[in-house]
Amino acid sequence: MDIQLEGIVVIVGNYGSGKTEISVNLAVEKKLAGVDVSIADLDLVNLYFRTREARKQLNNLGIEVILPPERYLQADLVILAPAVSGLIRNPRHLTILDVGGDKTGARVLAALGDAFKGRAYRMLQVINPYRPFTDTLKGCIEIKEGIEKVSGMRISGIIGNANLINDTTIDIINKGYEFVSMVSNNTGLSLEFITIPSLLSGKVDMKRFSCPVLTLRRQLVPPWIKTDLF
C-alpha cells in the first residue's frame, strides 16, 4: 500500500512527535519512487535536531531543501527563509513543510497565510502515543485544536508514529496503531499512514494495518550514533 500524498503537505504535531524524522523519510521515499520532492524547514521553535541536520543526504538525493541562509543557521532567534512562500505558490509534485512543535511552532503558518490563500493543502498531525500529552484522545484533540486555532488552517489527517527510538517493539507498533485508529474513528481524521523503525522492518505483520506504512531510518542522531543511511 503506497502513501498517497501530493501537492502541499504540512506536517504538524506536538513537540518531539517525530515531525522532522517523518518529513525527511517521506521526502526520501517519494523521491526514490520518482516523485519530484521539495522540503522546507519551518521549525522556528526547536534549535537542535532539525531538518537542516539531514540536508547533506537530502541534497545528494536531489531533494530540494529550503533552509534559512547558512550564516543564520545558528542564530538564537531563528529565521524563516523567504523562499518558503514562493514554494507554497509554486509547489513541486510533493512539497513537504516541516513545522515546529505545538501551537507555538504552528504560529509560523499564520505568517504564511497570504501564500496559502486559495491553495489546496493537506495538513497532517503526527501522533506518538508514547509522548507526554498525546497518550489520550483528549490530549490529541487539544493539540489539534491549538494548532488549528493559531494557524487558521485545518488538519485533515493523522500520521501514527508509535516510537520509543531503540526501545520500540512490535507490541508498541501494534498498540500504537490501535490508538491512532481510535483517534481517527473519534475525530473523523483519516489515518494517512503509520511508521515503523527500520530495525523492525520485516518483523511486523503488515496485514494488521489497513493504512500504508512508512519505514523510518533515523536521521537526527546524537554525535555518538551513526545516521541510518538511505
Binding site: 508514547y130 509522548r131 507526554p132
Partner: peptide, 14 residues
Amino acid sequence: GKILMKGNEAIGEA
C-alpha cells in the same frame, strides 16, 4: 511503562 521524552521535559517530570 516507558515514554519518549526530551531531556528537559524529563527533568521537569522527575
